[in-house]
Amino acid sequence: MTEPALAPRNAFGGVLAVWGVALISSIAIGIFVPEVYRAQWLLVCFGGVVLLSFAVQLWQGRTQGFILRVGGSAIGSLLLMGMISIGFALAALAS
């Protein structure tokens, strides 16, 4: 039987950490990967971010709201990476 935590950790911190990894990795892909391969690498990166979101939420060990936190991490990362890739696409069109 498990006892409830007296002072549970903030569950939103794990979501923000995954968003930070998505931000840094998508900017790195936009800078270092040639334009022809950017879409493929962004897909690979998003797959890694989804796995990371599962790992982070499982590491926290809280069952309440697990699906909501993993979904928030994944969807937020997808939107963030999409906005950054749109920015790089517009920059490529301008040059």
Rank of each mutant, 00 (worst) to 15 (best):
S26G: 03
S85D: 07
R9N: 10
L16Q: 04
I75F: 15
A89G: 11
P4S: 00
G47H: 01
G61D: 00
R62F: 08
S25E: 03
L80E: 06
G48L: 12
A5P: 00
Q40I: 11
M83G: 03
G65R: 12
A94D: 07
P4W: 02
L42K: 03
L52T: 03
G20Y: 03
G72A: 15
T63F: 12
L52A: 10
F12L: 14
F46W: 13
V21E: 06
A74I: 14
G65W: 10
M83D: 01
I29E: 03
L79N: 13
L16P: 02
L52R: 08
S77W: 07
L68P: 05
G87I: 05
F88S: 08
S25I: 04
L23A: 10
G72Y: 10
I67Y: 09
F12E: 14
L80D: 03
T2W: 06
E3P: 04
A28P: 02
A22H: 02
G30E: 05
L93Y: 06
G76Q: 11
L80P: 02
T2M: 14
S26A: 09
G20A: 14
M83N: 00
L23M: 01
L42T: 08
V18T: 11
Y37I: 00
C45S: 15
F32R: 02
M1A: 14
L79F: 12
F32C: 14
Y37M: 13
L78S: 07
L51K: 09
A17S: 11
V33D: 06
F88M: 12
G65S: 12
L43S: 11
G87M: 12
L78K: 00
V70C: 13
I86V: 07
G61R: 05
A55S: 15
S73L: 10
G48K: 03
V33T: 04
E3S: 13
L6R: 08
A39N: 11
V36I: 15
G13M: 12
E35K: 06
L6D: 08
Q60Y: 07
P4H: 00
L43T: 01
I27Q: 00
I67Q: 09
I67V: 15
L52C: 12
V36Y: 13
S85N: 09
G47D: 02
L43E: 05
I75L: 15
L68Y: 14
T63Q: 11
W19K: 06
L58E: 07
Q60A: 13
C45Q: 08
Q40L: 15
I31V: 06
G61E: 00
L79T: 10
G14M: 05
Q40D: 13
R9W: 01
G82S: 07
G30L: 09
L93C: 02
L93S: 10
S53P: 12
G82K: 03
